[in-house]
């Protein structure tokens, strides 16, 4: 399976890359880690005339804290996110999510920018993006804009990015207080895409009340979604398993997941509830452990 021919452009600076994108636009495809684009090209599902390889650009691979948020460069690999000490402390939801992507080799090459721009409806990161209210930063020669995760994913393999824009950064909160997070991914084989994936974040206060909740689901529709009903049911309630069981039941609200060779729509709806319960239970345990440790 040989990919189709293309002409190669290798910019050496970000500005150069943006110039090229504004010039070649629709005829060009950005190439980062290649772990979505190259398989697509082999299958002739993509045959771009020009490839703009951004893998050599400096300064797009970083994880740092800035004003209460964690900024992650687009070229940061899944492996780097998985093993980041900063994320382990301040937002373990993203590192756990990264650790569940594909396999060791895929995580060594694939980038967060590539995964989000590709927008596979069963990809793992989008669940965390929804749960965390993440922001995605896009740049073009026209300037920079910050897109909310909820406005970013438009449909299967479709995002709010314009053809002259480069995704340059992802911003997520640096979590505080007695928080807990978990990502639960249902798969039947090693290194598979999620049948259902649920990312959960909870924060409790000293009185044992849930004060913050974020729940994102992937694999259950044309894009990842935020489980608003579940979040509503959690906030202000006692941090107990009862609360979680009751809230999780609302995870399948408004879901109309696809039926495919791996699972029926009905099964996915049922599993959305189960995986939400598991993710929230684990997040709650982590939050309580944090309270015990600090309080």
């Amino acid at each position: 399976m040989y990919p189709p021919r293309f002409s190669l452009i290798v910019p050496s600076t970000l500005d150069e890359a943006l110039e090229i994108l504004s010039k070649y636009g629709e005829n060009a495809k950005v190439l980062a880690g290649g772990h979505s684009l190259i398989p697509l090209m082999k299958l002739r599902l993509a045959s771009p005339k020009y490839i703009v390889y951004i893998g050599k650009l400096q300064g797009l691979s970083y994880i740092r804290e800035e004003a209460g948020r964690i900024h992650i460069g687009a070229l940061t690999t899944h492996a780097t996110i998985e093993s980041s000490d900063l994320l382990a402390k301040r937002n373990p939801l993203l590192s756990e999510t990264a650790s569940r992507i594909g396999d060791l080799q895929v995580r060594n090459m694939g980038t967060i920018g590539g995964s989000l721009a590709h927008a596979d409806p069963a990809a793992d990161y989008p669940a965390a993006m929804m749960a965390l209210n993440a922001e995605i930063v896009a740049k073009s020669i026209r300037g920079e804009r910050v897109i909310k995760a909820s406005d970013f994913f438009k449909g299967p393999f479709t995002t709010a990015l314009r053809s002259d824009e480069l995704l340059v950064e992802v911003r997520i909160p640096a979590l505080n207080g007695f928080f807990g997070t978990a990502y639960e991914k249902l798969v039947f084989r090693a290194m598979d895409f999620a049948i259902v994936g649920v990312a959960a974040m909870l924060e409790i206060d000293k009185t044992g009340t849930i004060v913050k909740a974020g729940v994102g689901l992937t694999g259950v529709g044309s894009t990842a979604v935020r489980a608003k009903g579940v979040e509503e049911e959690l906030i202000g309630k006692p941090a107990s398993i009862d609360t979680i069981v009751k809230a999780s039941a609302r995870a399948s609200e408004n879901l109309n997941p696809p039926s495919d060779i791996r699972a029926s729509s009905e099964y996915r709806r049922a599993m959305a509830v189960v995986m939400t319960r598991r993710a929230l239970s684990r997040a709650l345990e982590a939050a309580k452990a944090r309270m015990k440790g600090q309080g």
């Binding site: 290649g34 772990h35 190259i38 396999d103 060791l104």
Partner: peptide
């Protein structure tokens, strides 16, 4: 198709599937 790992080599210290890299 990047599934079997038979093509794995070390690139700059990291294992990668060389069938899925230009």
């Amino acid at each position: 198709t990047s599934n079997c790992g038979a093509c794995t080599v070390i690139l700059n210290g990291k294992a990668v599937k060389s069938c899925t890299l230009y």
